[in-house]
Simulated scan of single mutants.
Amino acid sequence: FIDLAIVGTDELIAAGLGDALRRSGIAVVGASRDASKIEWSKSFAKELMAEAGIPTARSESFADAAAAKEGLLRWDAPVVVKADGLALGKGVTIARTLEEAVEALATPPANSGRVLLEEVLEGEEVSLQALVDGETVVALPPARDFKRARDGDTGPNTGGMGAFSPTAVLPDDQAQALADETIVPIAAALKKRGMPYRGVLYAGLMKTADGWKVLEYNARFGDPEAEVMLPRIEGDFAKLLFALGEGRLAEYVAAEPIRFSKRAYVDVVLCAENYPGTPKIGMAVEGLDRLPADVLAFHGATKRGPGGDVLVSGGRVIHMVGSGDTIADARERAYAGAEHVSFEGKFYRSDIAQQEVAVA
């Protein structure tokens, strides 16, 4: 018997798995297919943001890449090219020239289906996730992630190369107030449309010179942010999510207010050779049995071999998460963990959380 289901991947949420499980009488943390359109259609998300008065980048939506190419005549570089649908975190290109934008429009996933052009925002990015039950919104610990494949935020976009929490850019004690500005109006707009949201809503935010602006929404836990945010939530997390799944979130947090640990966490993602292209797979992963103290290993793309050994099965293989009293301590432990685990072709960024340590 299943008491609680947490739908964790974007394609399953978009396929309506949460709806099917709810029809079976199961408590579900996972948006409906209709409500999750806020992630699987960037155009819908922009429409909803306009309706709810959410500050965001100026954008223009096009039926296909050919129309967007014509529309480029109205835009100056740099410009963001966004595939409208799901793209495993790889559907966004920041084109520094119009020639780069044309190239992006001719390349998957932007060359198939609806596409958006968007202004480039400058500032510091933060990920803010919240539990949402209708119009009840409870902020979770903020985090920062690293999307580019290589050090110095260079290379192609990925599903995420690392993350850390907490962050000075959005301190914990300001998280709920910002969720009230950027997530509560979206929850209200969805409910008004007859598609109430029940699950985790992720807001990708940019702190600009003009204030906070929303880059995107995801209808699920962010990855790699979840790996550094979830360990910071104190109390009985299972009971908290069960209350959300049953539609009792407001009642539960009134009796058991959510609390964040002061401990810091840093996630360094170990990737397979050639990621974010087609990764090399099948190699043995070694060292997981001798991790340093205060280091967790979250499996991202592994499987068991015939002999029981752990094998690489995808691009982002293992998340090495270090914890400590400070970001500097947690970072040191995460990288120690990264050195302990080995597989052929392993690579990772060496600058995760570096800027937070530098300003601490």
Rank of each mutant, 00 (worst) to 15 (best):
residue 347 F to V: 12
residue 12 L to Y: 09
residue 351 D to L: 06
residue 128 L to K: 01
residue 2 I to M: 10
residue 82 K to I: 01
residue 81 V to N: 01
residue 153 D to H: 02
residue 259 R to D: 14
residue 24 S to E: 11
residue 333 R to C: 08
residue 121 L to D: 00
residue 81 V to G: 00
residue 240 L to F: 03
residue 215 L to P: 06
residue 294 D to Q: 09
residue 107 T to M: 08
residue 271 C to P: 07
residue 92 V to L: 05
residue 107 T to S: 10
residue 170 L to G: 04
residue 138 V to P: 07
residue 275 Y to L: 05
residue 290 R to F: 05
residue 116 L to I: 01
residue 159 G to A: 12
residue 58 R to Y: 08
residue 117 L to H: 05
residue 225 E to V: 07
residue 53 G to L: 15
residue 18 G to V: 14
residue 326 T to I: 07
residue 66 A to I: 02
residue 49 M to Q: 14
residue 89 G to L: 03
residue 158 T to H: 03
residue 114 R to M: 06
residue 112 S to F: 13
residue 272 A to N: 04
residue 83 A to S: 11
residue 35 A to W: 00
residue 321 V to S: 03
residue 40 W to C: 00
residue 41 S to Y: 08
residue 236 D to K: 15
residue 104 A to H: 03
residue 44 F to H: 07
residue 319 H to I: 04
residue 308 G to S: 01
residue 202 Y to M: 14
residue 229 M to I: 10
residue 350 S to C: 13
residue 81 V to Y: 00
residue 108 P to K: 01
residue 307 G to F: 01
residue 273 E to V: 12
residue 159 G to P: 13
residue 189 A to H: 06
residue 130 A to E: 06
residue 302 T to R: 15
residue 27 A to F: 09
residue 223 D to P: 06
residue 288 L to N: 11
residue 48 L to V: 00
residue 216 E to I: 04
residue 346 K to R: 15
residue 307 G to M: 15
residue 334 A to I: 07
residue 296 L to I: 15
residue 16 G to D: 09
residue 21 L to N: 00
residue 165 S to D: 05
residue 346 K to C: 09
residue 315 G to Y: 02
residue 43 S to E: 13
residue 151 D to I: 04
residue 219 A to F: 04
residue 118 E to Y: 00
residue 80 V to F: 00
residue 208 T to D: 07
residue 10 D to V: 01
residue 298 F to W: 15
residue 187 A to Q: 05
residue 197 Y to R: 09
residue 116 L to P: 05
residue 92 V to M: 08
residue 189 A to N: 02
residue 269 V to Y: 12
residue 310 V to S: 04
residue 182 T to N: 12
residue 88 L to M: 13
residue 324 G to Q: 13
residue 358 A to V: 06
residue 282 G to S: 10
residue 332 E to A: 13
residue 269 V to R: 12
residue 204 G to N: 00
residue 153 D to A: 10
residue 293 A to E: 14
residue 223 D to V: 08
residue 245 G to A: 01
residue 328 A to H: 14
residue 134 G to H: 08
residue 89 G to E: 02
residue 190 L to T: 09
residue 204 G to R: 03
residue 65 A to I: 04
residue 285 V to K: 08
residue 186 I to F: 12
residue 5 A to W: 14
residue 37 K to I: 04
residue 32 S to Y: 10
residue 132 V to Y: 07
residue 56 T to H: 13
residue 140 L to R: 01
residue 302 T to Y: 08
residue 239 K to G: 10
residue 338 A to G: 13
residue 17 L to D: 03
residue 13 I to Q: 08
residue 306 P to L: 02
residue 194 G to V: 02
residue 26 I to D: 00
residue 15 A to G: 10
residue 62 F to Y: 10
residue 163 A to I: 11
residue 170 L to M: 07
residue 70 E to C: 04
residue 64 D to M: 03
residue 261 S to N: 11
residue 220 R to M: 03
residue 215 L to R: 09
residue 66 A to P: 01
residue 352 I to F: 08
residue 161 M to N: 13
residue 35 A to M: 03
residue 168 A to G: 09
residue 48 L to F: 00
residue 257 P to Q: 07
residue 75 W to I: 02
residue 352 I to T: 11
residue 342 S to E: 14
residue 354 Q to F: 06
residue 328 A to K: 14
residue 296 L to V: 14
residue 243 A to I: 06
residue 125 E to N: 08
residue 158 T to P: 00
residue 257 P to H: 06
residue 15 A to Y: 03
residue 323 S to M: 08
residue 246 E to Q: 15
residue 223 D to Q: 15
residue 273 E to G: 05
residue 323 S to G: 09
